[in-house]
């Protein structure tokens, strides 16, 4: 039976890919076309200024060409971002200060540490909340309030406070990252731990099972699908937290620093390539969690 399914599913994915390749590529094509189109009005003002100064004229084709190839465009064209990404990711040595891999790693390490702290904290809080009504009443409101404060407002304070007690570098960034990522884990995990229905709990009562047995044998495994769903949100939030944590110090390292430096010096191509690097990194992190989820749930025997 599992063999039949495995081949069946494989075939399903293949036909699905064939069917969805066209729409996916179409949407991608439309986005890129819109982007190129938007570059023309965004960047032509500068070209017009130059022309007015020199008294020269340009054909429409030349104007468009100029809009797509400026050094400091308001909106860089897709190929400019792609070239910058290629240069800073592949062509630079990864130890170079100009390598996006170098900056990406700085941010990623803070992200992973923050994600680990946030996830552990989230799971612990969820366990407490599910097992103690007092904790539910006292902790949950604060967890919710914590997420209503803009992270950009609280991040500098965290960095300043930690700096004053001698903590700096990766740790403050990881804490900001954890601050953002613990919340989805608390909410998802609490929901997951509460997901067994009254009948399932009654069944354990008929066995005279202890609370601990109920936790390990029923609540924890039942919460796994919920946990993984939250982890996907949490890992993306962790990355945002780490990047935001890099901004207030005027940091010199990390994707956040690249964003900040790019905006100081009007290096829009650099900003956009850092943005894309962050987006790609986030997508990879979410995909990795998704993969772990698939393997874990399959090994647990839960049908996907």
């Amino acid at each position: 039976m599992p063999i039949v399914c495995a081949t069946g599913c494989g075939r399903g994915i293949k036909t699905m890919f064939k069917r969805s390749a066209l729409p996916v590529l179409t949407v991608l094509g439309v986005i890129i076309a819109l982007w190129y189109a938007a570059c023309v009005p965004m960047n032509s003002a500068w070209t017009a200024q130059q022309l007015a100064r020199s008294g020269a004229t340009m054909t429409v084709t030349e104007t468009v060409g100029a809009a797509w190839s400026q050094d400091r465009p308001r909106l860089p064209a897709p190929h400019q971002v792609a070239v910058e990404l290629w240069d800073t990711v592949v062509m630079k040595k990864i130890t170079s200060k100009r390598s996006l891999v170098y900056h990406g790693w700085i941010t990623l390490s803070a992200t992973l540490l923050g994600f680990a702290i946030g996830t552990s904290l989230g799971i612990l809080l969820a366990v407490g909340i599910v097992h103690s009504r007092a904790m539910d009443m006292s902790v949950m409101p604060w967890a919710i309030v914590s997420q209503t404060i803009p992270i950009i407002a609280i991040a500098p304070m965290i960095i300043v406070v930690l700096y004053s007690i001698g903590v700096q570098g990766m740790i403050p960034k990881a804490i900001i990252s954890a601050y953002l990522s613990f919340f989805p884990v608390v909410v998802g995990m609490a929901k997951g731990l509460r997901s067994p229905d009254a009948m399932q709990l009654d069944l354990l009562r008929t066995y005279y099972a202890s609370d601990a047995q109920g936790f390990w044998k029923l609540r924890l495994p039942a919460s796994m699908p919920y946990l993984f769903a939250s982890l996907k949100i949490a890992v993306a939030a962790s990355l945002v937290g780490a990047i935001v944590g890099e901004l207030p110090t005027g940091a010199v390292r990390g994707l956040g620093a690249r964003l900040l430096a790019g905006s100081y010096y009007g290096q829009t191509v650099q900003i956009w390539s850092a943005l894309f690097a962050a987006a790609i990194l986030a997508a990879c992190l979410v995909a990795i969690i998704g993969l772990i989820e698939k393997v874990a749930l399959r090994r647990m025997g839960m049908r996907q």
């Binding site: 009948m199 399932q200 009654d202 069944l203 009562r205 008929t206 066995y207 005279y208 029923l218 495994p221 039942a222 796994m224 647990m300 025997g301 839960m302 049908r303």
Partner: peptide, 21 residues
């Protein structure tokens, strides 16, 4: 009697754990 595990209880739904064989 419950403590002594005097009875087995069968509910309307089988309620098997999907993560166990």
């Amino acid at each position: 009697a419950r403590k002594a595990r005097a009875y087995g209880y069968v509910f309307q739904a089988a309620g098997l754990y999907p993560w166990r064989t």
